[in-house]
Design a protein around this nucleic acid. Structure first.
Lengths: 164, 164
DNA sequence: GGAAGATTGTTGTTGACGACAACAATTGGC
DNA sequence: GCCAATTGTTGTCGTCAACAACAATCTTCC
């Protein structure tokens, strides 16, 4: 509280040269408050941690989930197409797919039309697994709703719809 | 457009086994739409890239800026206090401060009260530099406003205020 | 038809970042 | 005074974005 009051003149070197104890949660952020990026970053960290925790039993991370979802909804896509759509580097997608293919969730099929590219498909096992992942992801989404409120979550989705 | 229509039954394997060309931006996201985490992640990437670009001339990244800001507003803090306040690992903060100290923006002063800890201060050079960084950060914030709109940015800050 | 340039998947490197574990120095509880 | 906790530091590991280079293949252009 005293710290919060003291910040009315944040530039000055606080007068008391001898250190005063800051009680950890009364440390001012000054200019950081009012920066959208800072709030978004902290929120994104929280939301990813909850996602990873909620899907911990099935060992699926957010990026893996996004890849599986896009392939499931658009079978036959090339790696480039998936990478572009999700904003992932194609170099990075290689490792992601290596992992998912080892786990028999995804298969790379040589494309007949363009022999450079691979057509991506879910395996049968991948289809049923994804269904389970989606149920868990929905549970995670309910956690988000519980954290920030139903109304706020919907406004958030509306505001950021352009980035999806 | 055709792809968007086809997604009304997204589960099915799209009928046409032979690959159909997806025109890159008509690829469906299926369950990803409606996930707050995905939108937030994409937005966070955009916002950080703009921050890094806008402060490219002074070579300051978002995390460095947050550290400088907190130290500037609360001189004399220990490394633990800064790390806790910003949600940074204290191990990570060591490297951040090494870099900032090399650039003569921050100094670590041995604390008299607790000889384990360091009191963190901006150098004179650091103070003037931070003032410049704040001007550039404000410019970045105006870019955010231009991207999502003034109203939406304010709602976003309000919704996520609890995470700062 | 064939050379030149672009695209696709792959491998590798770099650096920022979060998480975790261990350690020495120091502090504080008892 | 002794034992537990804290602080800064070092190190490792894994995720992730950004590049660069490469072989195979496709496309364009002459």
């Amino acid at each position: 509280m005293t710290a919060r009051a003291a910040q009315t003149s944040p530039r000055k070197r606080a007068g008391n040269g001898a250190a005063r104890q800051h009680d950890a949660d009364e440390i001012g952020l000054d200019a950081l408050v009012g920066h959208a990026g800072y709030a978004v970053r902290r929120f994104q960290i929280w939301i990813f941690q909850d996602f990873i925790r909620t899907l911990g039993d099935v060992d699926i991370r957010p990026t893996q989930y996004s890849v599986l979802t896009v392939i499931g909804a658009n079978p036959g896509l090339s790696q480039m197409a998936v990478a572009k759509r999700l904003g992932i580097e194609r170099a990075r997608l290689v490792h992601l797919l290596d992992s998912l293919e080892q786990r028999k969730l995804v298969k790379r099929v040589k494309s007949k039309e363009d022999r450079r590219s691979h057509a991506l498909h879910l395996t049968a096992q991948g289809e049923t697994a994804l269904a389970k992942f989606k149920r868990l992801a929905a549970e995670h989404e309910r956690n988000v709703e519980a954290k920030i409120g139903r109304e706020n979550r919907e406004q958030l989705l509306r505001i950021l719809a352009g980035f999806t």
